[in-house]
Structures are given as C-alpha cells and as structure tokens.
Amino acid sequence: MSEAVSKLYKALRRILAEPMGAFGVALVVLMVFGAVFADILATAEPSDISPRDRFQGPSITHLLGTDHLGRDLFSRVLHGGRIALSVALFSIAASLVIGVVLGLIAGYGPRWLDNLMILVFDALKSFPTVMLALALVTLFGPSLTAVVVVVILVNVPGYARIIRTQTLALKSAQFVSAAQSMGAGTTRILRAHILPNVIGPLLILASMDIPVVIAIEAGMSFLGLGVRPPTPSWGAILNDGFAAIRDTPWIAVAGGLPIIVTTLGFTFLGETLRDVFDPRLKVR
C-alpha cells in the first residue's frame, strides 16, 4: 500500500514539475474543491427565488450578482460545478467500462465478431453529436440521462477501438501464449494479462475527455436539452445570461468563466499526464 502511495507521490511531483501541469492541477483543485464543498461555500440556496433581488450586480452579499429570478449566481455556479463534475466523471467511467469490455471482446474474439463490432462502432461514430443529442432528447426528453447517454455513445466507439487495437497486438505476445499453455481460460487471460497492459494510455485519453464532456453538458443545457430548471447548470446560467447580456453581462460571465477555467485546467492536466507517462502519444 505504502508503495502505491509513494508511486502516486512521485507521479504528482513529475506533473507539478511542468509549469502547464502545475497550472492545470491548481485549476482542477479549485474546481473540485468548489464542487465538493458547494453546500458550505454557497452563500444562499441555489434555487431560492427572490424577485426583489433580480439582476443585481456583484456585491458582498451576492459575489457574482443575481439572475433574472433573483437567484444567487455564486451559489448556482458552485452547485452547477457539482453537476458538471459528476456528469463528467460518471459518464466517462461508464464509457470506459463499456468501451474496455467491448474492445477486449473485439480484439480477442473471433474475426467475424471483430468485423461486426468495428462496423457498428464506425456507424455510431459517423453520427454527428448534435444529431445524436437531438434524437435522444426526443426519446427521453431533456434530462441528465440524455446527456449521459449522449456522452457514452460518443465515447465508447473510440475507447473500444483503442483497446481492440492493442489487444490484437498482444493476442500473439509470448506471455499470452505462455498463459494459454498453462491452461488459463479466456477471462483470466483478458483480466490478468491483457487488461493491465492496455488500460494505461486509455485512462490518459479519457482524462483529456473530461473537459469535452463538461462542454457537452453545458452545451446541451444551454440549448435546453440537458438539465431541467431549476437545477443549476453552467450551460443554463450562460443561457440566462445571454437573454440579458446587454444590461447585465455578469450573468453570462458567471456561466462562461467556470466552463473556460475547468476546461483549461483539465486539458492542461491531461496533456501533462500524457507527456509525462506516455510520450508515444505526444503530437509533435
């Protein structure tokens, strides 16, 4: 256990040694801190409407001002961060699980199954994200579920393909033949011998997808296809702000700034992770 801790510590040191990595970590920590402690940090209930306080500028009581219903924007941004982060983490985790399983099956299974699965992945991938989102919303109605399903459908084919390619390459590796010769079954070979060797690069890529998911969630909520009011979401705040951008620009800023900050933070962090741990993926 202590070895794992020291490994983690070493990794963190290497990330912090890169200026871009340190900046990324700082932004991400800020964002996660805000999301986790939203209840304590929030100065008001995020959904409490107070018509008297509509369209107030930033002040001591309302750090980021209020919106057209008089809701405290600072609190809404914090709680919106919670939504954004949990949607991102949950849907990426689900995409990872599904993608890895499908990729292993495609890579290790018979040739015809592989061909069939590749066909399905390619078909899914050729679908524009927006179309997919619209189609799903007509099915489920605007909701968080729709957002999550869209993200999974968008990510799984890519993840599965990465795992499949590497599994194919490892299928004939000597250590896999050795396991077969000892009598190991397919599940054991996939779990103990192939998975640990293929998952690393995918985890790095997935971490770089977190900002993309946050943007998708914000985008769908902005269009009214995602989170339903009054639940706070950065996209929804941005939309509210757009309606009144001439008179009260701080609303749009309150919605847009956190999106930019988190996206930037996660992107920097992900790129540093990639450069530090998997230089092969580096684009020159």
């Binding site: 590796a173 000597q174 250590f175 033949s177 050795a178 396991a179 010769s181 103990a192 011998h193 640990p196 060797n197």
Partner: peptide
C-alpha cells in the same frame, strides 16, 4: 517460450 522476459506478463 523463447523470449525470457517477453514470456512473462509485464505488469505482474
């Protein structure tokens, strides 16, 4: 198998 290191699973 032939390769002494390659026949051992690298992450075990």
């Amino acid at each position: 198998f032939q390769d002494p290191v390659g026949s051992l699973s690298p992450r075990m």
